[in-house]
Structures are given as C-alpha cells and as structure tokens.
Nucleic acid binder design. Structure first.
Length: 630
DNA sequence: CTGAAAATGAAGGGCAAG
DNA sequence: CTTGCCCTTCATTTTCAG
C-alpha cells in the first residue's frame, strides 16, 4: 500500500456517520473551505456560515462582490445553488439567455442537431413552440440531401464546435465552416489528410484501396486502427474489428439520417432492427484482457491515437462490454475512433465484470494497486471454504449486479439439500449451481447459501470496507450503488500511468461519479486529488463520496454537480478558469438501456438513460476545446 | 391505530455470444 | 442449445409519521 492510503483505516468497523462531521476543523490557508464545499446543503448550515461560504467562493477565484450577491440571493446554506448562480452571472451580463431557453437549446442539441441550427430555429419559431422548432430543424436536415458529403465526424481536425453530430444537420449552404482541406473530397487529399494524422503513407493507401474510393475518413481510420490492432496483438482483437469489407459512405449517411428522422414515428424496436441490420459488429477479445493485466502483462506497449484524441486532457470512458450490436462502434466513433479496451475484471480480482474502456491514456508502464486483491472466492471469502461442497467448482464470482437473491430462494435451496443424507442428486446439484451462479451465492453453513454482504461487495470491487455504509443509506441502495460502480483495481491499473505525469496532483472532471470509483482509484494510486468536480444525480451517492473525501483527509477541493445536463459550456469554462483546466475527464455513462438483464427497455444508446453518453461526449469536447485555447 | 411511503420479493422472458 | 447480464415492474410487506 502506498503512503497516501495508509492514513485510512481500511478495516474500520466504525460506521461512517455522514451527518456527524463534527466541528469543521479550523480553516487553513490552502484549503480553508472544504466543509462548505463537501457538505450537502443540510449539513453545513451551522455556525457563522456566511463569511466562511463567501471566503470559500472567493478562494475559488470569484470576485467578492459577485459572491456576496450570490449568497444574498440564495442564502448561505446551499453551496450548489450559489455556485450555479456564480457561474451564471457572466452569462447574464452579456446576452441574458434565460435558463429555460438554454434548456430548449440543450434539448435539441441532445437530439443531435447542431447548436447553430438550433439557435437559428429557435429565433425563427420562438422558444415556446418546440414542435415547429423541430419541424424547422428537420427541414434543415432534409436540405442536406445535396451531395455534400459528411465531414465533421470524419474530420478530426475541425474543431468540435457546437454539436457532436453536425453531420446530420449541417449543410454547406446553411453555414460555412472554414475548411482548408476537405478530407473526403478526393483520394489525394484524403491520403494527405491521413498522413497528416500520423499514419504512414502505406497504411493510408492500403486503407483507401481496401475501403474503396468512396470511403470516408472515419472508415479509413477505422480500418487502419483495426489493421494496427490486428498486427500488434492477435490475442487482443482476434477478429477484424470491422468485418464489413467495403462500407459505403452513402449508406452510412442515409442510415444516420434515418435514425434521427424516423425516430419520431417508428417504434424503438424497428429502429433497433434496422440498426442491427447495418451497424458493424465489434468482436470481443478472448481472453478479455485488454492491453494486459498485472499477472499477464501484454507485449503491446504503445498504440497510435488520432491526433485529435491525444491528451492532455486525458479521458477515460467506461460501459458494459456486452451491449447490443452497434453500440460500441457508435461509442468508438464519437470518441475519436479509439478502439475500446475490453477487460474482464475476472483477471484482476475474484469477480467477473466485463467492461469496455475507451481512453487516450498511455499504456506502457502500467502498475497495479498493492496489495493485489484476492483472485479467488476462497481467498476473498475464506470462511466459505469450510462449507463449500466439492461439486460446486466455481473459483470466481459472476458479475456483481444491483439486486441480490431473496431469503426465500436461499431457504428453498437449503430445504432441497437437506432431504438426502449423502450427496444431493445430480438434478438437485444442477439446480443449486444454476441458482448460485445466477445470484452469486456463497456457502455460509451446512447446506446454506447466502448472497454477498454489502461490505464483501465493497471489498471485491476494491473499495474500503463500509465505503457505502451509514448516512441513512439502505441495504438495497448500497447494493444498487455498488452494482453500478467501477472495479477499482481494474480502473486503477489503467490510470496508474498518470502518477508520473502528475506528481503534484491532478484536476479531475468526474462524470457519473457514483460512489467515487475513479476518485478511490486515483487516491489509492497515490495521485493527489487537487480538484474534483463530480457530477452525480443520486444524493446518496454524493453523500458517500463526500463522506469518503472527509474520511481520507483530502486536501483538494470537491465540488458536486447534480445534473449533467445542467453542466453547459459556460459552467465548464468557468470551472476550467478557476481550476486551471482539467487533466482528466473520467466516467461511465448509464448502462441500463444497454445491459443484458434489462428485459423492458434495452433500447441501446438511444435509451432514456444511456443516451446520456452523448452528454459525456459533449462535455469532453468542450473541455478539449477550452484546453487547447488556454 | 391508520394511512402513506419506503423497502423488499419475485416474476419477467430479451439479447448476444459461445 | 445454454449461460450470463452495472435491470424493470408490480405486488406485497414493513416502516414511519401523525
């Protein structure tokens, strides 16, 4: 264990009392405001708060006048409100777009239209009439029929201005982008473009030859990446990543348009079927070890990233590996065409967790967290060994999910096993094993199985014991929060390369933070957390992170934001000005519309929650844009 | 004690990969 | 075919405020 984690008692039996922070320790000079920032609204309304709160925000770099104004308007209790107000002020001074208006804009941008078009449509129709705005936007999209080829998503050199998907609605006749080079125009310029991106001429011409004269830059880079991957490590991606040999650019364009136009009157299922029809399948590697594990380091130590993807800022995106077809190629396409690193945490700890990670981190000289976590069920849960029957051959647990088995089920199992004296019959064994695998049951007594306790789940996922305990959280919610979290050892292994890059500490924008898997990983790696802006919708999760922040005596600043859709460009810019930019943007967007166990709304990336992925992309683009202009 | 709200239990029967 | 999956819905039970 490294120095930074040694001040935390990993085996503490004490409950974390979130509401009992105790008296806030006296303000130092470097970090005088922690308790105001960290606490939620209710917890820090105690003594002489006003000036403390004011000092806090002044310390963040806001002017005293503005802070005083914000505190007067919002009271000194709700720091979130104050922060929001502060971030709004400069906007109000300039053009005063009401928050409702920006909401409308965001709404349509979220649907995939470009910011400029949306603004224009709103100007024409008024912000109240969303229907006619939509109609106007769709008309714009239809105008796009002119043979102007898509260029934005395939042109990594154009600044990612405005929307992520301008190619759906953008038309040269509607507004002009300053393009010195149109990479899709002809073979020669595409060749030039690819070499400019850092690919060799051979790679580029081979790709053009292979993908055909009509192929887009995106397809070409896909092909080159796939070829590089295949060359670098057969074990990593044993099958060609994009098996469709000659994708047609026009098809793709039509397909994308269809997806957004027809959304309005087609059932999700129909859309999904269509998507499945022409989306590329992306094959999962076997074994699922990504660029290697601590016990099995891979010989692949570097990879070529598109120039537009290079850090800093670094980013790290996570989601379930077994998503519906086409989801990962879409994710990859929106994240600079970087191939996901698929890893099963099975190779890091005692429990499976198949996930894909898209990131632009270096991959050489990774190192694991120490001590290494237990790698088998027996090591992780030694007390179960005594009761483990020989016919249960499991050595690893399955993926830890958000629900646990009921007491009734474990009781049924006990009764089924108690009947015979000797070995249970094969059919009983089969039933029991099936249920044990399905619900991750472990042996806790003679003929007795039980679901994992929350603290065991915490341990298996690499969190400190009792990380999610206390503060009024229910058992069920603990399982839920844990089931949605990172496996810390896995993520930390990938993030370990940041330690040498940021010895003085790191500023992190943590999206969909949950219970703080990323923060815990960085902390356990011994990377000081200078500033953490955490976006998390769930209050219990925010409390868990705050509590951990206190427990581990963090010296940096922690800021909570509730709703990712409220985090607009202005706020990001101001945050970046105050914190000197972000070094890392990290997060895993909701998977519930992707995950296999969702019978009802497995709608893919277009699903209600999972579509928040596009907010991740939006925010990452913004951070990158402001970083490069700093 | 009573009604509302929260926690729990169980069924559900989808999709993709091997 | 089988297995596995950061799950949702709704009925039922338990807890809690009044």
């Amino acid at each position: 264990m490294d120095g930074h984690s040694s001040d935390f008692d990993w085996d503490t039996e004490d409950e974390l009392e979130i509401e009992n922070y105790g008296p806030p320790y006296s303000s130092g000079v470097t970090h005088p405001y922690e308790e105001a920032v960290v606490g939620s609204a209710e917890t820090n309304s105690v003594v002489s708060p006003s000036c403390k709160v004011i000092d806090h925000f002044v310390g963040m770099g806001f002017s005293k006048e503005l802070v005083t104004k914000a505190v007067e308007e919002n009271g000194d209790e709700n720091t979130n409100l104050i922060l929001e107000a502060l971030l709004q002020y400069p906007v109000m001074e300039s053009s005063l777009p009401s928050s409702s208006k920006s909401k409308v804009i965001d709404h349509f941008i979220g649907m995939g239209f470009s910011e400029k078009l949306v603004t224009k449509a709103i100007q024409e129709n008024g912000e109240g009439n969303t229907d006619s705005i939509l109609e106007t936007l769709l008309t714009y999209s239809a105008l796009e029929k002119s043979p102007a080829k898509q260029h934005i998503d395939s042109d990594p050199s154009s600044d990612m201005e405005g929307s992520l998907m301008e190619d759906f609605s953008d038309s040269d006749s509607l507004y002009e982008t300053e393009e010195t080079i149109n990479p899709d125009s002809d073979e020669e310029s595409r060749l030039l473009f690819l070499t400019k991106m850092g690919y060799t001429e051979e790679e580029a011409s081979a790709a053009i030859e292979r993908c055909g004269p009509d192929s887009t830059i995106a397809e070409l880079t896909d092909f080159i990446c796939a070829a590089q991957m295949a060359k670098a490590a057969d074990s990593l991606f044993p099958l060609e990543v994009y098996p469709r040999p000659k994708p047609s650019c026009n098809d793709e364009l039509k397909h994308k348009k269809r997806r957004f136009d027809n959304d309005l009157w087609k059932s999700k299922k129909q859309i999904r079927l269509e998507m499945n029809g022409d989306e590329e399948a992306l094959h999962l590697p076997n074994p699922m070890i990504g660029f290697g594990t601590p016990t099995d380091p891979c010989h692949v130590t570097n990879r070529i990233l598109p120039e537009s993807a290079m850090g800093p800022p670094y980013f790290y995106y996570e989601n379930v590996a077994l998503a519906p077809k086409g989801v990962w190629s879409t994710i990859s396409r929106f994240l600079y065409d970087i191939q996901p690193e698929f890893v099963d945490s099975l190779y890091f700890c005692a429990t499976a967790r198949k996930r894909g990670y898209v990131h632009n981190l270096p991959i050489e000289n990774r190192f694991p967290l120490v001590p290494l976590p237990p790698h088998t069920i027996h090591e992780a849960l030694p007390l179960t060994r005594k009761w483990w029957p020989s016919w249960d051959t499991r050595t690893k647990l399955n993926c830890l999910q958000t629900c646990i088995a009921s007491a009734k089920l474990t009781d049924r199992i006990r009764k089924a096993l108690e009947l015979p004296d000797g070995e249970p019959t094969p059919s009983v064994q089969k039933f029991v094993i099936e249920q044990c695998k399905k619900w991750n049951l472990v042996w806790v007594g003679r003929n007795k199985v039980a679901p994992l306790e929350p603290d065991e789940v915490e341990m298996l996922l690499g969190f400190p014991k009792n990380h999610t305990r206390g503060g009024g959280i229910s058992r069920t919610d603990r399982y839920k929060s844990l089931g949605n979290s990172f496996q810390v050892d896995t993520v930390a292994y990938h993030l370990s390369v940041l330690k040498d890059l940021y010895p003085q500490g790191i500023s992190v924008l943590s999206l969909f933070s949950g219970i703080g898997g990323a923060e815990v990983a960085l902390h356990r790696l011994g990377i000081p957390l200078k500033n953490v802006v955490s976006v998390e919708i769930s209050e219990v999760n925010r409390n868990i992170l705050s509590s951990w922040w206190e427990q581990t005596n963090q010296k940096g600043t922690l800021i909570h934001i509730e709703d990712i859709q409220q985090l607009d460009d202005n706020k990001i810019e101001h945050m970046m000005n105050h914190f000197g930019g972000f070094d890392l943007v990290i997060g895993g967007s909701p998977c519930n519309n992707l995950a296999g166990s969702n019978r009802h709304h497995r709608d893919g990336l277009e699903g209600k929650e999972s579509s928040l992925f596009f907010d991740y992309v939006r925010i990452l683009d913004t951070v990158k844009r402001f970083s490069s202009s700093r």
